[in-house]
Design a protein around this nucleic acid. Structure first.
Length: 325
RNA sequence: GGACGGGUGGGUGAGUGGCUAAAACCAGCAGACUGUAAAUCUGCCGCUCCUUGCGGGCUACGAAGGUUCGAAUCCUUCCCCGUCCA
């Protein structure tokens, strides 16, 4: 990259679920010769459409969408795996001079992509099984004790009740044969070759919650139940990872008559609200985000986004093509 | 009209003389998180004051009185709600 050939832009839209990221993503892509790249751990899976709020064909308005429906429900998504496929997509868009517009629901995945991950061992199921088993036999705090021995620094940062994180930390220490804190200190490999513009959607809490409630009701009324029914009928294991996503458990309970539709709806709305709050917490500390305090489908907000992108140097109608001018 | 049961903090709901500003859960708020992340985990949560201390003051368990060193907890009356009997 030199002055005559500046780095292409990449737009990342972050925000809580139901804040209108998909709508804004398509809108931006339409104006800057872009393509949408989903950054969402759930939309990766094929077959789980309604409950994960994948943009429907008519909502995509002819804009290409990437990293949706790329995993089999029996596969397991990981931050590192996402990074790998996303890098390939970005390279493709660079070649074709299209503006990547990331719609980001999963903050960890965005960070993995932009800031990179440490050179770190992948998960080992065998090791995890063993650790989990020993944790059950031993008194509480056992895993924490193990980690404290392997890496006191990491142990100090993880609550002793947080089994999931403790297991990962221990796993890394054992496989890497050195403390995970040391592995982390060795650094990440950040994304290079792109000018990243971050746009954040932060609707007033009340408005967001209303959206969540309405969307949940609408999903339940528009095929979510049938989707789950069909997935189960297709022979997919009930243990497939995507069935753990918000709402799928409740929908299955309704199908088994263990829960009324009303109860399910309320439970799903509640879980979604909590999820949105966690996303907000994560995104709030994301650096370099230009925040917009509303919903992504609001024309006034969209005009503000357009204005912002243009002042950053993006040219309407040309997008990534700007380079090489 | 009579017989029971019940009225607790934003909600559900424990608590039946001091360890109770009151369990637990929900809601709410805030936060952590480098390979399960729609996951996992943590803190706060009546009001208020400051010298921020396992500190002080005030208010609080339907209402009003009373018993007691001390009451959400016991007594009296009243007001509500539910169920049953008339």
């Amino acid at each position: 990259m030199n002055q005559k050939n500046p780095q292409p832009f990449l737009v990342a839209i972050v925000g809580p679920t139901a804040s209108g990221k998909s709508a804004l993503g398509v809108w931006v892509a339409e104006r800057f010769s872009g393509e949408v790249v989903a950054c969402d751990s759930t939309q990766l899976y094929r077959g789980f459409d309604v409950g994960t709020a994948k943009p429907r064909v008519e909502e995509r308005r002819g804009i290409a969408h990437h990293l949706i429906d790329v995993l089999d429900p029996n596969d397991g998504a990981t931050a590192g795996g996402y990074r790998d496929v996303a890098l390939a997509v970005l390279e493709d868009l660079r070649q074709r001079e299209r503006l990547p517009v990331l719609t980001v629901g999963t903050g960890l995945y965005l960070r993995a992509l932009i800031e990179g991950l440490a050179e770190i061992p992948q998960r080992s199921e065998e090791l995890r099984v063993r650790l989990r088993a020993s944790a059950e036999e031993q008194p509480p705090g056992h895993l924490h004790n193990i980690l404290r021995r392997l890496d006191p620094e990491a142990a100090a940062k993880i609550a002793s009740a947080d089994e999931q994180k403790l297991i990962r930390a221990i796993e890394v220490c054992l496989l890497a044969r050195k403390p995970i804190s040391e592995v982390h200190r060795a650094g990440r490999k950040p994304l290079e070759g792109w000018r990243v513009l971050r746009i954040g959607l932060m609707p007033p809490r009340e408005e967001l919650y209303e959206r969540i409630h309405a969307r949940t009701a609408s999903m339940l009324g528009h095929g979510w139940m049938k989707e789950v029914q069909d997935l189960l009928k297709s022979g997919l294991s009930e243990n497939a990872k995507p069935f753990d996503f918000i709402g799928y458990r409740e929908v299955r309970a309704v199908l088994r008559n263990e829960l009324s539709l009303d109860q399910a709806r309320e439970a799903i709305q509640q879980a979604t609200r909590r999820y949105a709050k966690r996303q907000v917490t994560w995104f709030r500390k994301e650096a370099g985000v230009k925040w917009f305090l509303g919903l992504g489908d609001d024309p006034e907000l969209q005009a503000g986004v357009l204005d912002f992108l243009q002042t950053q140097g993006l040219e309407a109608g040309r997008g990534a093509r700007k380079r090489g001018v």
